[in-house]
Nucleic acid binder design. Structure first.
Lengths: 198, 198
DNA sequence: TTTAAAATATGATAACCATCATATTAATAT
DNA sequence: ATATTAATATGATGGTTATCATATTTTAAA
């Protein structure tokens, strides 16, 4: 038996590797998709060898589930920070501008996992879909709280429609091979939900 | 050398197999994704053996490109038919209702390929992305022509925003594991772009 | 410094997949 | 009916991948 300090240090070491693998995987799935993400690639990118993977995760599937969950949680956290930093009454506009910005469109590895992985979701394991659904609901609530008529049922509806539009626009802007069209799509959605601004 | 009738018959036979493979593949990519679609599966579903595949297509990649192109062309054709069949002034509503219907949400194999494959597009070959971009532009134009202020630049913008919203909503409605949320998302987008109706 | 335990690396296995060479079957023209 | 050619089937190859058993290295305690 070991004393508590040993256990803590031991845990820490493994936790660091576990965390690094997870962080790499959270980016890899958004870059290469669930199907396109292999154990060997992730371990190499994490600076480890492929065989050691199973000391950290039960299977490739559990890693992908945890990685998706982490990506979703981080995305909600980023959105919360944008809302908190926005001037009063400007939270929605700030969220939309961040979401439809060229930086977000070009940062698929670290951006919203729904626009990066959405069309692969119907095939994923129940755990993956459950986590994704949870984070989507969190995001809807976050958006609804920033709307002028928060509390009324229509706020929730408006939040859902806005989020679907933002995610769809981002996904399509990344899908097409015509940069001018990508920009036009973002501008069109911006205008549609924010008619006041040019 | 052969006479013309022989050539025609010969072509026809191969064309039938080619076409059946393509049709199966166009459904398979929407069901299983580009990465998840294998040559052997497609050939089996087409009633042929895997090895014979290369008599019909140069490679798996060229098949996937052709299959995506066919799925996109068929989707635009379906939308055109819906528009043509709608009563005067009701084309947009008819398109939205078809797009956000439970039937379309549940028919991923035969539905809009952008919502089924959109988040895999950034990784696809130039040919695949070019064809997808083309069909998306066709769809934008089709929608714009049905808008009240067709001809003005804002019609094009409205069409882009509407399409992004419809595609995003469909994708997310399929992604989440909560049927009530799926329905609420579709209803919210319907209301947002069609405030007149309950 | 030596020992015990944890963390990681190495190498192997089995399954899967795209591709291709060759054999077989089916269809057509004489 | 037979010869010719197209279409498809069979079986093999090389590459990749998830998984795992075992060996090595690293870490911390004595």
């Amino acid at each position: 038996m070991q004393n508590k300090s040993t256990q803590r240090v031991t845990k820490k070491r493994k936790e660091i590797s576990h965390d690094r693998i997870l962080e790499v995987a959270a980016r890899a799935i958004r870059r290469s998709g669930y199907d396109g993400t292999g154990v060997a690639d992730i371990m190499k990118e994490a600076g480890l060898t492929h065989g050691g993977f199973y000391a950290h995760f039960e299977s490739r599937d559990t890693l992908l589930a945890e990685a998706g969950d982490r990506a979703g949680a981080e995305s909600v956290a980023i959105a919360s920070r944008i809302v908190a930093a926005a001037p009063a009454g400007q939270a929605i506009r700030a969220l939309m501008e961040a979401y439809l910005s060229a930086e977000h469109i070009n940062a698929i590895e670290t951006g919203c996992p729904v626009s990066a992985l959405g069309s692969e979701m119907p095939r994923q394991s129940p755990e993956v879909r459950r986590a994704a659904t949870l984070h989507i609901k969190e995001m809807i609530d976050l958006v609804a709280r920033q709307l002028p008529d928060w509390g009324q049922p229509q706020a929730h509806e408006q939040a859902m429609a806005l989020l679907c539009a933002l995610i769809g626009t981002t996904m399509i802007a990344r899908a097409v091979d015509d940069p001018a069209l990508s920009e036009a799509l973002c501008a069109a959605t911006m205008k549609q939900f924010n008619p006041a601004t040019e």
